[in-house]
Design a protein around this nucleic acid. Sequence first.
RNA 1: GGCGGCAUGGCCAAGUGGUAAGGCAGAGGAUUGCAAAUCCUUUACCCCCAGUUCGAAUCUGGGUGCCGCCUCCA
Length: 533
Amino acid sequence: MTLRLTNTLTRTKGSFVPLQEGKVSIYCCGVTVYDLCHLGHARSYIAWDVLRRYLIWRGYQVTFVQNYTDIDDKILARAAAEGSTMAAVSERNIAAFVADMACLNILPADRMPRATGSLEAIRALIGELEARGAAYSADGDVYFAVLKHAGYGKLSGRDLAEQQENAAGRVSDQEEARKRHPFDFALWKAAKPGEPSFASPWGPGRPGWHIECSAMVREELGDTIDIHLGGADLIFPHHENEIAQSEAATGQPLARYWLHNGMVNVEGEKMSKSLGNFTTIRALLDSGISPMTLRLFVLQAHYRKPLDFTADGLQAAAAGWERLRAALEVGERLGWVRASASAADGPAPLSAELAVQRSRFIAAMDDDLNTSAALAELFDLARPLRGLAGRLRSGENIEGSQDAELQQRWQLFVELSEQVLGLSLGAAAGLKGPGAESGTDRGAAPGGAAATSESGDEAQQQQIAATVYELLRRRSQAKADKNYDLADDIRQQLIGNFNVELYDKPGGITIANGGSLQAAVSFDPSRHSEATP
RNA sequence: GGCGGCAUGGCCAAGUGGUAAGGCAGAGGAUUGCAAAUCCUUUACCCCCAGUUCGAAUCUGGGUGCCGCCUCCA
């Protein structure tokens, strides 16, 4: 089985064959750093993170480059609005980007070039295009001449002759007057008075938007790369222009595979900056949605399809993540060890059933990253583990349960979930970004008492445990007296005051867990002794 | 006007020729004083019409509806 990917360039799904066996070069269009990242970025970069993780897991040596566009009109506007500088705005948003991506468990790119750091390559490329007659300068601007480039429009399926009239009048008259063709686009823009600018053979100015990607791809990865990634909104004009520039300069195909992710809607409406209805990643996480919930939500749909963010959808994903989380957690609770396996190491010896599930997972991922189908396998793998988790949670003693098949199942499950899909316990609880304290969405319960669990000192913790224990004792007595109103009242008190939940198990034993408690407290009426599992 | 995409159960969403994965929600049952968790069982004539085929959600033609891009945008 080989990986099959839908290539925008050919509009077909075909086998992925890298240029060099065993190696994959990927360029992913990054962000313009004038603001915080929004859900569209999250969707896109989660999808590409999974592509990358899957390739790595399959044994490829992947080089992943993603740019920062840190020269741009909108950054300038933002800087002017806040009395700051372009560099300051960029720096701040780059830091935010890094934090947001880490929070979502998105692997950092191998290299992240910036436009400001690539000016040499950009100027060289423009010069080359000019020398080849593919570009012309006009009043300090330099434009790419689309008519000089055969094949312009091949990515987006546009025909220059047909499109010409439709495009008229879409750009400012001034700029229009300098262009020879409406689709010609700026490679270099002359500086306007008061703007920061960079020196160039054409006078002071700054690069156009598209040229930086062409220059960076070439500088970082070479003339032809394996995979070029981006949002569907970039197909035209950005990627079309990128192809034109690069291929006019090198005479080689820019990328063998062009992959584009579908757009994000919010409650059925297109999300866009111009409509002002975008939600930042931070705002969503701050609202109590866990990073892994967001990740699961994104991966439940195919990356090429539009994705509608709704409160209901996120809630469903949160419940789904709870299930996966329980299954991930159970092995750790039982002290099981992760296997350091990957597809490249060859399959570990698996039971027949597990081997089938593993190969189904691979088949799904091979089919243009069908994460939805892959997740179905993951949920199937998790089912018996959830059963184990359920028994553990309700206080049943299964410490001795070292069933080999279950352990193996857990190891496979963890491997696929964490390594390939990036759905990870550690990422949910450990890797903290702003506003991402809780691994579970239900952790955002009333009272906010949960937050104290990490800061409380030992004495305080003992005090709380003792109080909880006393309440458990009283509740046990109330149950014995069949005074269920009081018993329920105590349950409510524990939730309200400490965010602690109670689980009754056979034998009248009650376990209190979560919230302000660092360790579970249990009460056994037959023993009257405290235990902390 | 040009290019492209999508229409599957209450919601989300796979499936691209052999009688419909998975998640959420719901129902019934086991367990429970009640909860929680878990387990079992259960819920679809795949937008419409015509055609191809032994057989279609899946292919072809037509229709209807929705959406994206064509302007900065992941």
